[in-house]
């Protein structure tokens, strides 16, 4: 940490539940400071009642996502320099999820939708069978590689306009997860999963705004996964297999 920690900047942090308000805090400005550092400073040195979530601090766990200057981001890997060029920083809970308190949202609706999209692996073999062999360089494996690194941070979900308009829409993360499993040659859910992701609240509801793809901190492309699901669902319907 640099010694010019004397200089401070104003940070506005959401306090309370959905009916809460932003409160201003003056926080020391430091080199290589992340947004999570800012929130942690406030909680440890200014107001211990501030509620927020984090775990790994290195971009693996997906628990520290918040709305930073109006955009959902993973705060542990977001440098203040990158998002507060003009010195203004406003930190709020993620959009589209119920606010528990301060910066903590209830993630249950988000993960419930993973279940609705049949986001669980359905094995086609047992423990007594040999290991499945999927060559790392095969097209099947590369298709999974493109989508599997989701950390469940809900940045895409909070950024999705359709989730805002249509609260039962499954959302980019659940659909991306479903497509990961559809691409998995070992999975046996087949048409049942395609049926789960089709419908008024399913993949066809996506407007391809691509906010999810733009904001995904893991540089995944849920929009591409959703487009692939639309194609697969349509083909299954045409073939009479849906």
């Amino acid at each position: 940490m640099s010694r010019d920690a004397e200089s401070t900047f104003a940070v506005h942090i959401w306090r309370g539940d959905a009916g809460g308000a932003f409160r201003r805090y003056d926080v020391p400005r430091r080199a290589s400071q992340t947004v999570l550092d800012v929130v942690t400073f406030v909680q440890r040195h200014v107001d211990p009642s501030l509620a927020y979530r984090y775990a790994c601090r290195v971009g693996m766990c997906g628990s520290c996502a918040m709305s930073v200057n109006g955009k959902a981001r993973w705060t542990c890997r977001t440098h203040v320099d990158a998002v507060a060029a003009d010195g203004a920083l406003e930190i709020a809970p993620l959009n589209h999820l119920p606010v528990v308190r301060d910066l903590v949202v209830d993630m249950a609706p988000f993960f419930d939708k993973w279940a609705k999209a049949r986001g669980s692996f359905v094995p086609t073999s047992t423990r007594r069978d040999a290991f499945a062999r999927v060559e790392p360089s095969s097209a099947e494996r590369r298709a999974v590689d493109a989508t599997i690194e989701c950390i469940g941070c809900a940045v895409c979900y909070a950024s999705c306009d359709v989730v805002g308009w249509k609260p039962d829409y499954l959302g980019p993360a659940a659909l991306n997860r479903a497509f990961t499993l559809v691409s998995d040659v070992r999975d046996g859910a087949g048409a049942a999963r395609l049926r789960a992701v089709a419908g008024d609240a399913g993949c066809q509801a996506c407007h391809t705004h691509q906010s999810c793809t733009e904001r995904c901190p893991k540089q995944l492309a849920p929009t591409a996964s959703i487009a692939s699901l639309k194609r697969l669902v349509a083909l299954a319907a045409i073939k009479g297999k849906l």
Partner: peptide
């Protein structure tokens, strides 16, 4: 749900 899914798929097509 199957009918719902097929209706959605055919609307899309």
């Amino acid at each position: 749900w199957g009918r719902h899914a097929r209706f959605a798929a055919w609307r899309f097509v």
